[in-house]
């Protein structure tokens, strides 16, 4: 038996919205420690890693570790049936091999309870070992600013160059019709830390060129949290981390560009 109760369905709705553009189907792992998933896009260039710790749930029970395969588009549709402030219960029986994942949504005043279930599927997907890494540069910035920059530069080109130095981070793109760039200057944290402030921890300048279409997908996680951190080292995958308050994170990894 697994059973996880989230105080607000909206968090889970936002998580699925953040993942479904990049990933169509994924295995979800339930263990004593919580709920996690790792999945790559079909081209194996981008990867997402979700962690929801057991102690972030209102209640959490997992008698035996289970991996359940779901179609994220179907899950997204199902979650549209939940009110944002509904309490959400996810549960599955593993007595005879779970073939469905069940959801119940209870309104804040407990007057309405709805139940839905999602058929599970067998998914044969590659998973990878991601080592713990020290990065050369970590940019911590507003997630809405990140979304805006990706949207703005997508109107110019297909790739973005992210150049981090001690002074700041510059996002730039060029295309047939022209080019554009946005520079965010490093700000030391000051009193009343501005929500839009950008800070950069850096050992040495780092630059990466990345396809904007993947970053547009990653930006779908912005509604989950005010901040995103971008972790960069030359020639290794870039990691974008969106922390989900009190409960976990979504991390996206994107392979660097090939030098032709």
């Amino acid at each position: 038996m697994i059973e996880a109760v989230l105080a607000q369905a909206s968090i889970f709705k936002k998580i699925v919205e953040a993942l479904k553009e990049l990933i169509s189907e994924t295995n979800i792992d339930f263990s004593e420690a919580g709920i996690s998933l790792q999945a790559m896009d079909s081209s194996h260039i981008a990867l997402c890693n979700l962690l929801l710790r057991d102690d972030g749930f209102k209640s959490y029970r997992c008698d035996r570790a289970l991996t359940l395969g779901v179609n994220l588009n179907s899950l997204s549709k199902l979650l549209k049936c939940a009110g944002n402030d509904d309490e959400m219960r996810i549960f599955a029986n593993d007595d005879s091999g779970a073939d469905q994942l069940n959801f119940s949504f209870e309104s804040a005043n407990s007057e309405r309870v709805s139940e839905f279930s999602l058929k599970l599927m067998d998914i044969d997907a590659d998973s990878v070992d991601i080592p713990d890494m020290d990065y050369q540069a970590i940019i911590d910035m507003s997630s809405s600013e990140f979304s805006r920059i990706i949207r703005d530069l997508s109107s110019v080109g297909e790739a973005v160059s992210i150049d981090a130095t001690k002074q700041g981070v510059k996002f730039s793109s060029a295309g047939d019709a022209g080019k554009g760039s946005i520079l965010l200057k490093h700000q030391k944290s000051v009193d009343g830390d501005s929500a839009l402030a950008t800070s950069i921890e850096i050992n040495e300048p780092v630059s990466h060129s990345l396809a904007l279409k993947f970053l547009s997908s990653f930006a779908k996680a912005a509604p989950l949290t005010d901040r995103v951190s971008i972790h960069m080292t030359e020639d290794v995958p870039v990691m974008f981390e969106f922390k989900i308050s009190e409960i976990g994170h979504i991390r996206f990894y994107l392979a660097p560009q090939i030098d032709d």
Binding site: P131, A159, V236
Partner: peptide, 14 residues
């Protein structure tokens, strides 16, 4: 267009 390498060439398969 941007050519990017597979993540499998960076991270080992589990």
């Amino acid at each position: 267009a941007v050519n990017q390498r597979s993540l499998l060439s960076f991270f080992g398969k589990k």
